[in-house]
Simulated scan of single mutants.
Amino acid sequence: MELLRLKDKVIVISGGTKGVGKAMAEVCGREGAKVVIGGRDEKAAKEALRNIRTFGADGIFVHTDLLNIEDCKKLFDKASETYGKIDGFFNYAGVTPVSPLDTCDEETFDWIMDVNFKACFFCCQQAIKYMRMNGGGSIVLTGSAHAWGGQKDRAAYACSKGVLRILMEHIAHQYAEEQIRCNYLTLGWTPTEGEVELRRSQGESEAELRKRAARSLPMGRMCERNDYSEAIIYMLSDASAMMTGSTFRVTAGEYI
């Protein structure tokens, strides 16, 4: 009999309608979790929920605009109202626009920090609120190799991912006694919808992007969505009960 590693756990995913977030929502369902998808694309969420239900699991979609902190609160309130608890939170939502230090405007900077950091901060606040009622839980923050300095055209983005590392370490240190743990999953270069769209706007096709990335990445190819499945399942499951404050890299050898 197959072991369901997230059986009966309630997992909240911000940005669960796109890219790695959507893929991991389906993976969590496959592993027996009740999945709460936060995002704005209802059509994509319904597709993910259909797939989740084919595994015999359950899930709901909560329309969430991460620029609205009340929506961040609503995401967790609805999860708790529906399923009675929250065991895990995977913070995937983020934006990655071009943002070099010498030309980034205030509007772009504020957008990046509001989505990537401010929304995550208040989502974690809500996650902790509900996890402590249930004796603990696991928070996984989506990181990036850019957090260690980043490329020249991603200065604001790099800062947003760097501050998430500090938030992860703070949560891990301050809430361990409540059995609330937090880890930082460093994602590699992945051809998500957002990444492909950005490169197309710069005149590069997805095929050209993949070829360029393959030449620069030590392991010879970009990371695909499902390359992160086992890491995320591990960090959300009881198998990682004693793991907190860790930086977990799945980057095809990329260290910026």
Results as ranks from 00 to 15, higher is better:
residue 152 K to C: 05
residue 39 G to K: 03
residue 47 E to Y: 02
residue 137 G to W: 00
residue 184 Y to S: 04
residue 222 M to G: 03
residue 160 S to E: 07
residue 28 C to Q: 07
residue 212 R to G: 09
residue 94 G to M: 05
residue 155 A to E: 05
residue 101 L to F: 14
residue 217 L to M: 13
residue 37 I to K: 03
residue 226 N to D: 15
residue 111 W to T: 08
residue 215 R to Y: 08
residue 108 T to M: 15
residue 129 K to G: 06
residue 30 R to L: 03
residue 192 T to E: 11
residue 90 F to R: 00
residue 10 V to A: 10
residue 51 N to V: 09
residue 49 L to K: 04
residue 19 G to A: 11
residue 225 R to K: 09
residue 84 G to L: 05
residue 137 G to A: 05
residue 158 A to L: 03
residue 248 F to E: 00
residue 104 C to R: 05
residue 210 R to F: 00
residue 133 M to N: 13
residue 208 E to D: 14
residue 19 G to T: 09
residue 255 Y to C: 15
residue 117 F to T: 14
residue 206 E to S: 08
residue 83 Y to R: 10
residue 227 D to K: 15
residue 147 A to W: 03
residue 250 V to G: 10
residue 148 W to M: 12
residue 256 I to A: 15
residue 194 G to E: 15
residue 164 L to Q: 15
residue 178 E to M: 11
residue 73 K to W: 05
residue 12 V to A: 15
residue 37 I to R: 04
residue 57 A to P: 11
residue 147 A to D: 06
residue 57 A to Y: 02
residue 45 A to L: 06
residue 19 G to H: 15
residue 8 D to E: 15
residue 12 V to G: 06
residue 155 A to R: 07
residue 182 C to I: 09
residue 58 D to N: 12
residue 161 K to S: 12
residue 146 H to N: 15
residue 36 V to E: 02
residue 116 N to P: 01
residue 37 I to M: 11
residue 111 W to G: 02
residue 136 G to Y: 04
residue 232 I to G: 01
residue 42 E to C: 12
residue 15 G to M: 05
residue 90 F to C: 01
residue 42 E to G: 09
residue 35 V to E: 10
residue 209 L to K: 09
residue 174 Q to E: 11
residue 243 M to L: 12
residue 54 T to I: 13
residue 60 I to G: 02
residue 228 Y to R: 05
residue 56 G to E: 00
residue 110 D to C: 06
residue 90 F to D: 02
residue 226 N to Y: 15
residue 241 A to F: 02
residue 22 K to Q: 13
residue 80 S to E: 12
residue 159 C to Q: 04
residue 228 Y to F: 14
residue 120 C to N: 14
